[in-house]
């Protein structure tokens, strides 16, 4: 059984310049204890996807179609109080900017204890401050922060970006969600810290067995900790498959281009190939396949018609090159 099942999802923003369709007929699922990497450039709708799963879309956005089934519950038609109940314990989302992720005027300990308190309330457990504090300290140790007692007594601005991201992961562990959504959790961090945080997430996934949906623009980050990878372009799925499959033999021209644009360590001779063109205008998207203006293999049919999803053995691709 899958933790998250998205069918035919459409999300639209209304702006002064018109309606912007950020997610266009998107379908996929995330299995139990599975990790899915969602890859795409900025504006591809990947962050919107994360927010729509936990019902935190900004006020000018709306669900325009499709369904999101999270742990057996339909999210798009939930009331606000029902949505509150799924947040945290069913799905927990962590955000990109570590400097803004913790409340600047409250101590770290207060914010973590709040999480335990909310969890206890939802699961009907009794909340006991001493027990909760012990649990918080333990989880802080779990995310490999030495001197938990010291960190807990600090304000967020006294911590480094890496430390804050770990504190937030600790918060996620305290909430014990079935699905953890991480929106660019490492983009704002130094490369070395990035690697540490990724390793931590990898370890925790194994230890706690939670499903992870990792949203990133960096396909190599996704490869590091994902079982499967989904590539998005202009609000649409373009390729979905096992991490190894997508990385080693990408099928869609956009996925190919993404992988070709990764600098590959010591191989200095390998040509770096940037993707030509610029991201599409989302209010008046290109006709047919949205990638066609930038596609090196463009055909006549690409300009006229939208490609359908084709695939087998869990590999999905949307391109006229493949049937």
């Amino acid at each position: 059984m899958s933790v998250l099942e998205v069918r035919d999802l459409v999300v639209e923003y209304s702006t002064v310049y018109g309606v912007l369709r950020a997610i266009n007929h998107l379908s996929f699922e995330v299995g139990e204890a599975e990790s899915l990497g969602v890859v795409g450039e900025s504006g591809s709708g990947k962050s919107t996807l994360g927010l729509s799963v936990v019902r935190l879309l900004p006020p000018n956005a709306r669900y325009a179609g499709g369904s999101i089934v999270l742990d057996g519950q339909e999210v798009t038609r939930m009331s606000n109080s029902e949505a509150r109940r799924i947040r945290g314990t069913t799905a927990f989302m962590i955000f990109q900017d570590p400097l803004n992720s913790l409340n600047p005027v409250k101590k770290v300990s207060t914010q973590l204890l709040e999480a335990v308190e909310m969890r206890c309330k939802k699961l009907g457990e009794t909340y006991d401050v001493e027990k909760a504090t012990r649990e918080v300290v333990e989880k802080i140790r779990d995310v490999r922060i030495p001197d938990p007692e010291l960190i807990l007594e600090r304000y967020p601005h006294q911590l480094s970006g890496g430390q804050i991201q770990r504190v937030i992961i600790a918060m996620a562990l305290l909430m014990r969600p079935k699905l953890l959504i991480a929106d660019e959790p490492t983009s704002a961090l130094d490369v070395t810290i990035q690697a540490q945080v990724l390793k931590l997430m990898n370890d925790l996934k194994k230890e706690y067995g939670m499903s992870i949906m990792l949203i990133t623009h960096d396909i190599s980050v996704a490869y590091n900790i994902s079982d499967r990878i989904m590539v998005m372009y202009a609000g649409e799925l373009v390729e979905l498959g096992s991490a190894d499959g997508v990385i080693r033999s990408p099928m869609h021209p956009y996925a190919k281009a993404l992988i070709a644009s990764i600098p590959r360590g010591v191989m200095r001779d390998a040509p770096l190939e940037p993707i030509r063109g610029s991201p599409p205008n989302m209010i008046h998207p290109p006709s047919g396949c949205r990638f066609h203006p930038r596609c090196p293999f463009v055909m006549d049919v690409c300009r006229r018609e939208e490609p359908r999803e084709v695939g087998q053995d869990g590999r999905v691709v949307r391109c006229f090159l493949y049937g």
Binding site: L56, R87, I94, N100, S101, P104, E114
Partner: peptide, 14 residues
């Protein structure tokens, strides 16, 4: 701010 979203994530009431 993300900390407000995170507070929502914890399941705090509006």
């Amino acid at each position: 701010r993300d900390y407000v979203k995170l507070s929502f994530m914890k399941g705090l009431s509006k």
